[in-house]
């Protein structure tokens, strides 16, 4: 317990953990794919930030720039038959299961070709065939759904898991406590993943909770849990692998909390410096030195796995994909007017 408290003290101090990752012992291809996927998510969201600022995107976008290591580190332990649920800040989650820029951009633009056929926008994403069941902006809304999806997986005799990505704010909702208790007692192989970015909307966790870690809710329900450096993709991957595999094999829940930080404010492209409470420009700059992509890429340069030029080429290639996906999405059709009413019910008759 003291170890955890010490770790937490260091994790919430952005001056710690800024060093490049130690990549020794990993396959080059694994590192390359991991870096590639994180960069895809980063650049896609930077595109959304700029188009939102420009006004092309009409609705709000909640960006997870800075938090990519959580989505990618976790998803490397998942398969397409798992049942993943997200929240308001879930571009990273859906892309980590299927990095289809065009479908994400089309959805954010409200186009028929989007992940949710233009009916969900940024905050209601679905890609069921790739394991991403859905994200919703009601804080903690999908948590019990993940428990149910996991329960169904167990009932059907599979070893698939249900997973809910939530933030530190969701922990304050009562249904998360109910869900932990229910998942434990049934049991149901539900993976609760907390991206603790230390803020709920505008407000720092220190003003909302008596502790800055959320693991105590798992402890209270006898759910296996871990506190990790959420900006270290290799640590997220390695440590979550153990817990996720236990859930698969035993049908029991687990809880993984990673401390991280978002570079943007709660919503859209602004940095929101002191719009809220306890979020200064100095903090943001310090946290940007713990950037998860930078730590991995520099680690890979130092180990001579890729060169800086290689990485520039990766960035250029992804940027090109983003431009062509965006242009295609812009030209795609909106849902036709009849869809307003024909998608309310299943219309099975």
């Amino acid at each position: 317990m003291n170890d955890k408290a010490d770790l937490l003290t260091r994790l919430i101090n952005p001056k710690e953990f800024q060093e490049p990752l130690d990549v020794s012992g990993y396959e080059s291809s694994f590192l390359y794919e991991t870096l590639y996927l994180m960069t895809q998510i980063r650049l896609a969201e930077e595109k959304l930030a700029s188009e939102r600022e420009f006004g092309t995107i009409g609705g709000p976008v909640h960006l997870s720039v800075g938090q990519e290591a959580m989505a990618v580190g976790i998803s490397k332990n998942l398969n397409k038959k798992d049942r993943v649920f997200g929240a308001h800040r879930s571009h990273s989650h859906i892309l980590s299961m299927n990095p289809d820029f065009h479908k994400l951009f089309a959805e954010v633009l409200g186009k028929e070709t989007g992940f949710s056929r233009g009916m969900g926008g940024s905050m209601h994403l679905t890609d069921k065939k790739n394991g991403f069941y859905g994200s919703v902006p009601i804080v903690s809304g999908t948590v019990p759904l993940a428990v149910g999806a996991a329960f169904d997986a167990r009932r059907s005799g599979t070893n698939n898991i249900g997973l809910a990505f939530i933030g530190d704010g969701a922990i304050e909702e009562g249904v998360v406590q109910e869900s932990l208790n229910l998942a434990k007692i049934l049991p149901s192989p539900t993976v609760f993943v907390v991206e603790n970015n230390l803020f709920a909307s505008h407000m720092n966790i220190s003003l909302r909770q008596p502790m800055r870690s959320t693991c105590r809710f798992a402890e209270a329900n006898k759910v296996e849990n871990l506190l990790v450096d959420g900006n270290n993709v290799l640590e997220v991957y390695e440590k979550s692998k153990v817990l996720i595999n236990n859930s698969r094999n035993d049908g029991t829940p687990c809880f993984i909390e990673g401390v991280t930080f978002r570079h943007y404010g709660h919503v859209d492209w602004r940095k929101d410096v002191d719009v809220g409470v306890d979020r200064s420009q100095e903090d943001i700059e310090e946290w940007m030195k713990r950037d998860p992509i930078q730590r991995l890429s520099i680690g890979m340069f130092e180990a001579a796995i890729i060169s800086k030029q290689d990485y520039q080429n990766i960035n250029d290639e992804i940027s090109q994909d983003i431009i062509s996906s965006w242009e295609k999405a812009i030209k795609d059709p909106y849902p036709t007017e009849d869809k307003l009413l024909t998608r309310v019910y299943c219309n099975e008759d």
Binding site: R83, F85, K128, Y133, G134, G141, T142, V143, P144, L145, A146, V147, G148, A149, A150, F151, D152, A153, R155, S156, G162, G174, V175, E178, S179, N181, L182, I185, L186, S188
Partner: peptide, 24 residues
């Protein structure tokens, strides 16, 4: 299945299971 006193989580469980093919 009899449950804890958790109307919210139990109903949400039903919704989640129904998305996967169960008929709760």
């Amino acid at each position: 299945i009899d449950t804890p006193v958790s109307e919210s989580a139990v109903t949400g469980l039903g919704v989640g299971a129904s998305l996967c093919g169960s008929k709760p």
